[in-house]
């Protein structure tokens, strides 16, 4: 079972993702440079956080044109699991692999803190076995994480079970106060219609071990490994 961690100019959470996969969860992981146009041999893809191309023009706007994104598109169309974290989520939005867009946080501040997430669906490879209503403690670190989509798209996301995580308080209540960036309907993560592509602003790779203040993030990667195991069985 081999997983790909994409690396763009300006990625900076690539080593965290690699560490979580390889040394915490214990699956094979390899860095894939953004110039590569193939993901042959990989069973899952992580698009890590960072500031690809210095966030020029818009977050993720340049990275969506990298050759590897064509391979990601084909990989996703084939049902392969893809997770985009933070800037990785922004890249997936810009690439049109997920609907909506990111705007500046409503506080106009870079937010760097632990937040709580309420799991909304277990239909993705990364949330399989995490029951609806589970509360996860995961950090965020971003300036443009204010998820926007028009009302019709938001309703369609909800109807089709594409909302995966919402910001909530420690008790699991989805409130205005627990929303760190102004995201529409407290959305912290969404998936594709097929469920195999997940984008989320919070960083599960930064909280995969108790020493980091929370090990909740590990559950997403464990879920992915279990999902891949089931698929190949």
């Amino acid at each position: 079972m081999k997983t790909a961690v994409l690396v763009f100019p300006g990625s900076n959470c690539d080593h965290d993702a690699y560490h979580a996969l390889k040394h915490v969860v214990g699956v094979d992981a390899e860095f894939v440079w953004h110039k590569s146009s193939s993901l042959e041999g990989f069973e899952a893809v992580v698009i890590p956080g960072g500031f690809t191309y210095g966030d020029y023009l818009r977050t993720g706007a340049m990275a969506k044109l990298s050759p590897v994104m064509g391979a990601v598109r084909r990989f996703a169309e084939g049902g392969g699991p893809v997770i985009g974290i933070c800037n990785g989520f922004q890249i997936l939005l810009e690439a049109g692999l997920l609907p909506g867009a990111m705007i500046v946080n409503d506080s106009l501040r870079f937010v760097c803190d632990f937040v709580h997430l309420r799991a909304v669906t277990d239909r993705t490879p990364f949330t399989r076995g995490i029951p609806e209503g589970t509360i996860l403690k995961v950090p965020v670190a971003h300036y443009q994480g204010n998820y926007y989509a028009d009302e019709r798209t938001l309703s369609s996301l909800e109807e089709r079970g594409q909302v995966v995580f919402r910001y909530c308080d420690p008790e699991g209540n989805v409130t205005r106060e627990s929303n760190p960036n102004g995201s529409a309907r407290n959305i912290a993560g969404i998936c594709s219609e097929g469920g195999n592509v997940l984008g989320m602003m919070p960083h599960p790779e930064r909280c995969a071990e108790e020493a980091l203040g929370s090990a909740d993030g590990r559950r997403l990667f464990d879920a992915m490994v279990a999902w891949l195991g089931e698929r190949s069985a």
Binding site: I103, V104, N105, D106, S107, L108, N146, Y148, G182
Partner: peptide, 13 residues
């Protein structure tokens, strides 16, 4: 420019 209806926190500030 941002579409009408899309929040512009910078503009507000």
């Amino acid at each position: 420019t941002l579409k009408r209806g899309v929040l512009d926190p910078q503009g507000k500030a």
